[in-house]
Write a protein that binds this DNA or RNA. Structure first.
Length: 277
DNA sequence: CCACGATCCTGCTAGC
DNA sequence: TGCTAGCAGGATCGTG
């Protein structure tokens, strides 16, 4: 499941090789729902002849910026991968979108579950509006205990549930939320507005830490995730609680608990992460 | 405004 | 062995 570290790793892998390259066209679109705001033809027409000017990330969106203010925002949801391949490479199964560049390079969106989406924007303002409407602060640069407390004020739902809400904090998903809560020693079902100031500070720091470590390790390849070159990350070898139900907590040895919160599974240590303060 | 369940998809796994 | 039911999950939408 690509979360912030996986999208960041992909963006870094693409940046140097895409900037300056010109789009020739779009190919391989077999699932129009993947393109919610522009047809394949419209994207091809808009981007043909334009060079990439920037490769960026906001939350879990991968952003490709082109000349003339055009841009694409790609969201991989759960199973999507964005791969850079030569045009002659055979298309992998579940390839649903190909952005073709002038010198024989393909950017391919491969997504078995078809949840991924690609949006076209015709100006920076339009794109930023779309993103800001959906996304809270960037955790690596714009988050601390006070800001997190502000975003959670008056919210009584479980802290874990709210960490998954992209309008609270951008980029955190199920895996890194569980890891951050473990790191901060906070029970996932704690009411968000019950967190003390020290807990908020710890949680903000823990979110940054697990995301930064995830980036250093080039992402977590727990299920489908691969980087732009098709290589897995290594963070799955360092997980403390996610996917480790019944295995010992690395801190205290207590078997890791697993509960359902809404439709999502949460992993935590019942000893290190007490339900009440 | 807030909470929360249903929905979209398909590959994989558990269970019979 | 072969089948199917159920699970996994990010974001959005609809309902209370």
């Amino acid at each position: 499941m690509p979360e912030l570290p996986e999208v960041e790793t992909t963006a870094r892998g693409l940046r140097d090789r895409l900037i300056g390259r010109r789009v020739v066209g779009v190919a391989g679109v077999d699932w129009p729902r993947m393109l919610p705001n522009a047809s394949a033809d419209a994207i091809a027409t808009a981007l043909a002849g334009r060079a990439v000017t920037q490769v960026d990330r906001r939350g879990k969106y991968l952003l490709l910026l082109f000349e003339a203010g055009l841009s694409l925002a790609l969201h991989r949801k759960m199973s999507g991968n964005v791969l850079l391949l030569r045009i002659e490479e055979p298309a992998a199964a579940h390839t649903h979108f190909i952005l073709r560049f002038s010198d024989g390079l393909d950017l391919r969106f491969v997504d078995a579950r078809k949840f991924g989406r690609i949006h076209l924007f015709s100006s920076d303002v339009e794109r930023e509006q779309f993103l800001d409407q959906r996304l809270g602060p960037e955790p690596l640069t714009d988050l601390d205990g006070a800001i997190l407390g502000e975003r959670l004020r008056g919210r009584r739902r479980a802290i874990k549930t709210l960490l998954l809400d992209q309008s609270v904090v951008a980029g955190v998903g199920n895996l890194y939320a569980d890891e951050a809560l473990w790191e901060a020693r906070i029970h996932p079902e704690r009411g968000a507005d019950s967190l003390t100031r020290p807990e908020l500070r710890r949680l903000a720091a823990a979110i940054k830490r697990v995301l930064e470590l995830g980036i250093e390790r080039r992402g977590t390849s727990f299920s489908d995730y691969l980087d732009a070159d098709g290589a897995p990350g290594t963070n799955q070898d360092y997980l403390n609680v996610y996917g480790r139900a019944a295995r010992p907590c690395p801190r205290c040895g207590t078997p890791v608990s697993r509960v359902r919160l809404g439709a999502r599974s949460s992993h935590f240590c019942a000893r290190c992460q007490r339900p009440v303060r």
